[in-house]
């Protein structure tokens, strides 16, 4: 991986069936990378969805969400210098 092909540090997985569309994650997300879906889920809720870019894997949306597993925050595994990887982990656990 080079500087030219820099990816987001994180990625979100949202369970559309567990999400109740309260919007707290959207409010909480610092880089504003979550939005409300246009369509409805099985229960009739508009649910949270990842905007597709910008996730830093900070995990704040996860703790703002009232459902146990509606959001899973994924962090990119960095295969570079150990120091950078350690920094990435401490950032995500804030």
């Amino acid at each position: 991986m080079t500087e030219a092909t820099k990816h987001d540090r994180g990625q979100l997985r949202i369970d559309r069936d567990e999400c109740k569309g309260c919007g707290l994650c959207i409010e909480a997300c610092p880089p504003k990378a979550i939005r409300l879906s246009e369509g409805l889920n099985h229960y009739g809720y508009r649910t949270a969805e990842y905007a597709g870019a910008g996730c830093t894997a900070c995990g704040i949306c996860f703790m703002a969400c009232p459902e146990p597993g509606a959001i899973t925050v994924l962090r990119v595994i960095v295969h570079r210098a150990v120091g950078v990887a350690a920094e990435g982990i401490s950032c995500a656990s804030n």
């Binding site: 994180g10 990625q11 369970d15 069936d17 567990e18 109740k20 894997a57 995990g59 996860f62 703790m63 459902e67 146990p68 597993g69 509606a70 959001i71 899973t72 925050v73 994924l74 962090r75 990119v76 595994i77 295969h79 995500a92 656990s93």
Partner: peptide, 25 residues
């Protein structure tokens, strides 16, 4: 490659023994 940074806690049941089809929330 990704790893889970924040995800469902192990202290929760994988599925909730509540009514009908609502066992995932």
């Amino acid at each position: 490659e990704y790893e889970v940074a924040q995800g469902r806690a192990k202290a929760f049941y994988p599925r909730f023994e509540r009514k009908d089809e609502l066992q995932h929330q």
